[in-house]
Amino acid sequence: MFDMLIVNPFTNALLLIYAFIGNFGVSIILFTILIRLLTHPIMAQQIKSSAAMQAIMGSEEWQKIQEKYKNDKEKLAQEQMRIYSEKGVSPFSSCLPTLIQFPILIGFYQSIVRAIGVTPLQLLQLVRSIYPGLENITPAASLGNLLPIDSKFLWMNLGMPDSVAVPFLPFGIPVLAIIVGLTTFIQTKLTMPPSANPNDQSAQMNKMMGLYMPALLFYFSLNFASGLAVYFITSNLAGIAQYAALGKVDWKNLFGGRSSTKVVDAKSRSVKKG
């Protein structure tokens, strides 16, 4: 079902772009940007809701009830719900867009993996995914013209992990994996929401994510097809651009500066100094 609803349409869309462009690396980049644009309204809503939640959590009233009911979890929950209700914010409003985006992003990721097809079994799955009507859109999308997919892009074979040989070194340099790690680190830093209390659990977890995510994606890119690394890099850069377009990029985070915590009243959306 997931394949039929999400992975197959995405795979065909990617192949169609490839049929027109003729370069699989560029097709991955364009398709990533396209998906980012399509999911932008959902993401914008999520960022907005997160900011509202952040504002509530940074408010004096919130801090007071935390202190007051720290030994009565039930009452604390009731009070928190009261504040959400008064401010007109649903606690699920920042979570829901994320949940909607997940299947899209995972399906998109799987469609790239499928289209790369680095084993006969994966190629069989790819051939099965191709819509028979695709070649009616353009003859370049016929089975005979699509396959084999040209996986050469710049210096890379998109079906293989990237490694650039350097004459004086006995091992290759994983250039793409390094760029993935760096762009993920930069994106996480730039888009990390300011915390009212840097010592709270959420701030700590954000901090950990800022370290773990780049390391994890670096590891993926080191070991998996470089076509995925192209996707990660494009996705990171597009993510930064999206946050920047919404005015949510905090450059001070990147250079170790301490960003001021902005507390936004959830109802009036007016900005106050926290």
Binding site: P91, F92, S94, I106, Q110, V118, F220, F224, A225, L228
Partner: peptide, 21 residues
Amino acid sequence: LKMLKMLAVLGAMVFLTACGS
């Protein structure tokens, strides 16, 4: 909620690991 979101992200990361090429 933050924790849930974080867990969801981590879950997705594990999922991505499992379905990689």
